[in-house]
C-alpha cells in the first residue's frame, strides 16, 4: 500500500465527514485521526456515566452543526458544501454540470456511496463530499492498477485542480469558523489540508 492509499483514505474521510450524519461511531473514528479533534470526543469506549454524557453531548453538538450548516437556510449559519453555491452563488450551476460530466466520463456513480438519506435525496454532483470521494476513488484505483495508474493520477490531479483546489480551502476555513462543534471545526481544517494541490504531494 503506497502513499496514495493514505491520501485516498484522507479524501474518503473528508467525504464521509460531509456526507454522513454524526453519530458516536463517526466521532470515534474521526477522533483517531483528526489532530484538532479532542480525543474524548469519540471516546465511546470510556466507561462511566460522565464519559457517556460527554459523548452524547459531543454527538448532539455535532448533529446541531450538521443540521444548521448543511440543511437549514434560516439558521444563520447555513453553509452547504456545494461548489456552485460557494463559487457561483447559485444551485446546480456550471460547477455541478462539469462535475457530473467528469463522473460520467469515469464511470463514477456518487449515488452508490454511503451517505445520509438527506444527501441521497439531493444528489448534487458538485457536493464537496462527492468530489472528494471521486478523487479518493481515482487514487485507490491507481493504487490497484499499475498499468492505468498514470492516467488515473492525471485525472485525479486535473479534477482536484479544477474542482477542489479553488474552493475547498476557503470553504473549510468558513466551516471551521461557523462550526460550534469540534468535529466540524476539525473537518474544516481537514478540508483546508485537502485543498492543497495534489500534484505537490
Amino acid at each position: 500500500m503506497g502513499d496514495f492509499a493514505g491520501l485516498a483514505w484522507l479524501f474518503d474521510a473528508g467525504a464521509a465527514l460531509l456526507l454522513n450524519r454524526p453519530d458516536p461511531a463517526l466521532l470515534e473514528a474521526a477522533a483517531v485521526v483528526l489532530p484538532e479533534l479532542p480525543a474524548q470526543q469519540g471516546a465511546t469506549l470510556a466507561v462511566g456515566e460522565v464519559a457517556a454524557e460527554a459523548v452524547a453531548e459531543a454527538v448532539a453538538l455535532s448533529v446541531e452543526d450538521w443540521s444548521d450548516l448543511f440543511f437549514s437556510p434560516r439558521s444563520g449559519r447555513y453553509l452547504p458544501p456545494l461548489e456552485s453555491v460557494f463559487r457561483e452563488g447559485r444551485l446546480s450551476g456550471e460547477a455541478a454540470w462539469n462535475a457530473r460530466q467528469a463522473y460520467e466520463a469515469a464511470g463514477f456513480e456518487p449515488a452508490q456511496l454511503d451517505m445520509d438519506p438527506l444527501w441521497r435525496a439531493i444528489p448534487h454532483p458538485d457536493h464537496l463530499g462527492f468530489e472528494l470521494a471521486f478523487v479518493s476513488a481515482l487514487l485507490r484505483c491507481a493504487d490497484e492498477d499499475a498499468a492505468g495508474a498514470a492516467a488515473l493520477h492525471a485525472t485525479a490531479r486535473a479534477f482536484h485542480a479544477e474542482r477542489i483546489a479553488p474552493w475547498a480551502g476557503a470553504y473549510g476555513l468558513k466551516l471551521a469558523e461557523a462550526a460550534r462543534s469540534p468535529l466540524y471545526k476539525a473537518a474544516g481544517a481537514l478540508l483546508q489540508e485537502l485543498a492543497a494541490p495534489l500534484a505537490a504531494r
Binding site: 474518503d12 456526507l19 473514528a29 483517531v32 464511470g107 463514477f108 454511503d114 492516467a151
Partner: peptide, 21 residues
Amino acid sequence: GAGAALTVFASGYKPTLKAII
C-alpha cells in the same frame, strides 16, 4: 484502521473507473 465509520465506500461500492484508462 479507523474502520467503516469514516469512509463512504464501506457498503462495497468499488468503482473501477476503467473509462479513464
